[in-house]
Design a protein around this nucleic acid. Structure first.
Lengths: 330, 330
DNA sequence: CGGACTTGATGTAACGTTTCAGGAGTGATT
DNA sequence: AATCACTCCTGAAACGTTACATCAAGTCCG
């Protein structure tokens, strides 16, 4: 109740630009210029303003600036879940890039709920943010195209389904990465190589599948439909899919899991059946998440430049915002 | 270049409240009330407004509302790194709670840089956010007290050092959790139980250490200073600390690692020396992060309600904001 | 029947910036 | 001495809301 009312902000909060202007004996416009480091201010005025700022402490109200200037300095970032290596690394990269641009991110986990994502985006658009980075967005291609049409700047990272040509997108080298993974297994002498995939229809699944088949085809191995098991990118899914594979009359000698979670599940399934890795079964993952490095034995995996992807997305977005700004001047 | 100029926002952006008011033949105040679902609006006016909104599409500009109403609906969240199970789970809990309150979070990773955290907070305070959740803040007790004094509402989660009494804080049950962990090892028959700790001076370290010693003392085991090795909560640190412990003439038969990362490092160190877990060496971790569940063998660990902690922090913060609002009315 | 009180609806002043159009002063050029 | 170019600064108008003070009708009561 009895707070120190001296410098505390309980009663009166901090100075406004107008108060600074009065104290320094100049106009608000001048203060604004000094604060923003613009030229065309006399040394005398600048010093007066600086002095007041130093003595009383002033910092511009971002909200007011946002309203006046039309830019909030905030970027929305939507993703399914934070608590997942794959996403958090992308997030990390994006965050760092945004920080470099002196922007902040408004984080919106969607929990894979389409509804939630739509309303969140709706909100982000209308004044809260300047643009957005959508990681593995839940929305359909049409919805995203609509959003784009609307003029809201955004970038998609790792789309589910092939997006509109005009929507800037960052995605990984699914096909070539998958080929490399399979080639690695082939080089170890494996010929019965199973694929534990993600959900069919997702770009990530389809393209990795293409890489998988291409690599097999390249050495003349006929793809066996029995060895392609659809799963869901989770460790549990990997476990179940692998268990099924190991039940086959002619089980695979190697498994290419379409991400590290699946691979970890695969390893668990093998262990439960007493199958040794890598002696009896080789497992290769995809993504190179932290988890891959701590399991036993260490998981061979395809490195994806996740943080880079986050950075890249921000770079694209910043360019969009820049363009928008330029257009606004005309 | 040739965008569809029909419904696109390239040229004219969306309607403002004033335009809606004109179209509906009422004042902006009335529109505002309709939008915000307040009473005291005639049916006629309400319908007119609704019609315009439905036909032209309107959504209030959050920035303007923030400026006018003094609340942004944004909460800052600072944490050392996103890409770390421990933090991302707390973050997840906080995010969910904020979503329930129809608020968004502005994510600020500090990368353990004190400087960065200070400037970020400075920025968050001045208009961008209504309050903040600081996870493992880098700032000193004095700085945090100062911030509190200033009237900016914030809550600390898992402080480094004991904070000011008046600053709302959420932290885990370090001491009792540590005791439980050690009791578990004791019950397995171990007597030479080593502790791989976090940095000395941190609350988390000191309290877990207290729990460790208390549990040993309770069964009459004299604590051996040689068995308490300071580390840094990282897997690499755990590996090095454990390697040193295993070099001892009379090495421990069990290791209590002060978090799961350290425990994972410990397991790696053991494996490198050909020491089997749990036959030759027992390892217990702390936090119950996802990683603990995927290593081999599965790591025994002390569950911390991390997501709950995030939720709790938000609940506290919301209460602070509520109080602030009430005080403002007087 | 007139004043006090409710209701319902409205106009308008904030909120704290940025920016634009212009004005005052100074020195230089004709 | 008049004009011009230049620098520095000011006043005021945005930006899109919300909330306060008002105002115009009704309604109730003595």
């Amino acid at each position: 109740m009895e707070t120190v009312d001296d410098a505390s902000g309980n009663g009166r909060s901090r100075l406004t630009i107008r108060e600074v202007a009065d104290l320094a004996g100049v106009s608000t416009a001048t203060v604004s210029r000094v604060i923003n480091g613009r030229a065309e201010v006399s040394d005398k005025a600048r010093k007066a303003v600086m002095r007041v700022v130093r003595e009383h402490g002033y910092s511009t109200n971002r909200t007011a600036r946002a309203l006046s200037g039309g830019r909030t300095g905030l970027v929305g970032v939507t993703l399914p879940v934070v608590h997942h290596s794959y996403f958090s690394v992308i997030l990390d990269g994006a965050g760092e890039a945004l920080y470099d641009h002196d922007m902040r991110m408004v984080l919106c986990p969607t929990h894979h709920e389409h509804e939630r994502e739509v309303t969140l985006l709706e909100r982000l658009m209308h004044g809260t943010t300047d643009g957005a980075v959508l990681i593995l967005p839940e929305e359909s291609g049409e919805e995203l195209s609509g959003l784009h049409e609307h003029g809201y700047p955004f970038v998609i990272v790792d789309p589910y389904q092939p997006p509109d040509e005009r929507v800037p997108t960052v995605s990984a080298a699914h096909t070539s990465g998958a080929s490399e993974a399979v080639e690695h297994l082939l080089s170890l002498g494996h010929r019965r190589i199973a694929a534990v995939t993600g959900p069919r229809g997702w770009i990530a699944t389809e393209e990795r599948l293409r890489g998988y088949r291409a690599a097999l085809a390249a050495v003349g191995v006929m793809p066996d439909p029995q060895l392609e098991v659809e799963s869901d990118f989770s460790d549990r899914g990997g476990l179940e899919a692998t268990a099924a594979l190991l039940e086959l009359p002619d089980p695979p000698t190697a498994i290419f899991a379409f991400n590290d979670m699946l691979a970890i599940g695969a390893m668990q399934a093998a262990r439960r059946r007493g199958i040794r890795i890598p002696e009896d079964l080789s497992v290769v993952g995809f993504d190179d998440t932290f988890e891959a490095s701590i399991v036993t034995p260490t998981l061979t995996t395809v490195r994806q430049p996740l943080a880079e992807m986050g950075r890249m997305a921000v770079a694209l977005l910043v360019r969009l915002l820049e363009n928008q700004r330029i257009e606004a001047l005309h």
